[in-house]
Design a protein around this nucleic acid. Structure first.
Lengths: 190, 190
DNA sequence: GTTTGGTGAGAACAGTCATTCTCACGGAGC
DNA sequence: GCTCCGTGAGAATGACTGTTCTCACCAAAC
């Protein structure tokens, strides 16, 4: 049914994004060359540039793609924990912990990309901001003080990445519980 | 008293580190060239390399230098807030807020550098880890649940950088208060 | 005054990389 | 079968950058 000659356009797109996801996330954008994207995707450079006119475009497409897949994965992990009877806050940190289990885990791709600073485009920054806003929305729908919880979550991700262990997740869980437990009486302290 | 010919060694070191601090922090390591460090420091390339044999060495020296200056600045801001009568948790977030006021604020240099991933050396990673551990120690000496507070603080820094405003500081402050307030009764919820 | 050692200024080198171009191929339409 | 378009493979281009080298200079030692 597909009139394609060698590789259908849809599969070329998929391959490019998956190669980008593997490499950009694992090693950081700056140390991945287009040649490596070519090798891993199996596409020719020509085809790669036909789909994404520049590395910056590929990065933007990757960020959009990763937003979709990460949010879907996170929601799925969240649902598993909730269905198992976990309280909302625990479900959030259980989901984080299981994400961290993945081999090659290296923190949040969006945070890491944002840290590049100078050679990002406004579009990159916008996608990153939207991703973090979407996660905060998600948590806010799940628990009281969800936006503050999102801050705690990002702290846990960053520290877990720097220290190379899961202890920050436990610390963050404590903070999350405190936050939700105190939800009704924020006026208590002067 | 100094037998130096043109620029004393101590001043050369200072100039190199200050130039590195300005440029690496503001723009990210990857997009700063040694030529720009030379221009801003006023040192010759030859002198620069005599002091720091490679860019990676300069980066390590910069991280060590920034650790000292940042911690000193943070402690000073903390003391100001405490002396003004702020509660410990508030003092922490007041200090963060005043740090963020600085023009060109761009998040935490250590977190941003760590995000580079692949082209860091083990030494770089060690310095970054030590810095975050030192901050956690500091907070832990200041408040109960100080290590969890450190996680919250990092979340606030990251989100403030991504969203470009100070709102995450306020959210984090809420989390910090909840944490400290609930310090005695963590067994309350099942 | 001459030698000497370190210096500044900047050229030179070597490697890397994003991006484009060449060229021969293979299938689709006629 | 011939033409033609899009493709793959990979060479070529052009720019950039970390690092080293050249060379003339200047201050201090003798």
């Amino acid at each position: 049914m597909s009139p394609a000659a060698t590789i259908p356009a849809a599969e070329a797109e998929t391959r490019a994004l998956e190669a980008a996801d593997d490499l950009f996330y694992a090693r950081g954008i700056g140390s991945v060359t287009m040649g490596e994207i070519r090798d891993r995707s199996g596409l020719s450079l020509r085809r790669l540039y036909a789909t994404h006119p520049s590395k910056a475009d590929l990065v933007a497409a990757w960020l959009r793609h990763r937003h979709e897949t990460w949010m879907a994965g996170f929601r799925a992990d969240l649902r598993v924990a909730l269905d198992a009877g976990a309280a909302p806050v625990d479900a959030v940190f259980d989901a984080l912990a299981s994400w961290m289990e993945a081999t090659g885990w290296r923190g949040c791709g969006f945070i890491n990309t944002h840290a590049l600073g100078h050679d990002l485009t406004d579009e990159h920054r916008r996608i990153i901001r939207d991703h973090k806003a979407a996660l905060a929305d998600e948590l806010d729908a799940l628990t009281p003080k969800g936006r503050a919880l999102a801050v705690v979550v990002d702290g846990a991700i960053v520290q877990a990445s720097i220290f190379g262990n899961r202890h920050p997740i436990d610390l963050a869980r404590t903070a999350g519980h405190a936050l939700v437990t105190s939800a009704g009486n924020e006026e208590a302290e002067q």
